[in-house]
Amino acid sequence: MSTAEPSLAAASVDQPAKPRWMLAGLLTGPALYILIMAIVPAFLMVQLSLAHREVGGLWSPGFELTQYRQLATPLFARIMGFSLLLALTGAVICVSLAFPAAYFITRMRRRAQVAWLVFLLGSLSLSEVLIVFAFQVLLSTSGTLAGALAAVGLLAPGGALYPNFPAVLTCLVYLLLPYVILFFYPALSQLDPEVEQAATTMGASRLSTFTRVVLPMMRGQILTGVLLVVIFTFGAYLTPLVLGRPPQWTIAIHINNAAMGAGNLPLAAAYAVAVVVFMVALLVLTRLLSRRREAAA
């Protein structure tokens, strides 16, 4: 899906006058709402991460780095390391499935494309709860899959297909695949077919057209797609919780446990701030990477 980019509408020749009161009337409500519901909570979270923890799930305002010190522990490093490993593995699988899928879909007739879009949007919007539950049914010992695998001897009779790393990974790929396909959809559908045809008239086979023209042209998009998967995986909560074991728990579960279970909101906030900082760093890195590539090209 195309994320909201505040790109301006095509500039008209004649700019209409901007009556300030008109803009104020239009934007005051939305601005207040965004201020209260987005900016204030964000500041609050930062403040919370620096607050002093009191007993019984309470906290008092302060400025201490107690919680951030906990980020320097091997435990936190391990959690982040695992989250990143899961995210990157998921990203590689997702992007390498989603990119060709989106490419093929954009080259279909309208009716088939619309059907695919409905299918993708439908499965994308399904609750993580529901998907996890479905996977539980699918992977359960009494399910067909386990039975079939046991029958061919790949699984001990009565053995379970979860909780484990592959189950978490498969479910995450499932959750993300429609997102990533829809993310690639606009760019790939915008690709001028004449560009590919030009490659063909110069002797390129279909495969080399794809690898030498389509893929390099979409380098930036692919990188951003990977980033999207990483962000989503870091926020994934139910999948690792239900289909994984504690070693496969992502940062999201630990944040939730700190906040809801242990009642240590400042620690949860510190974790969250760390995650956001990490995300921003990744974003900047991706931008730099694609810019350098562009400059080199």
């Binding site: 045809q197 030009a198 002797g203």
Partner: peptide, 14 residues
């Protein structure tokens, strides 16, 4: 491999 010039030119931007 007939060389072809397209209406959009179809130069490779990358």
């Amino acid at each position: 491999q007939f060389g072809m010039v397209f209406q959009s030119l179809a130069l490779f931007p990358h």
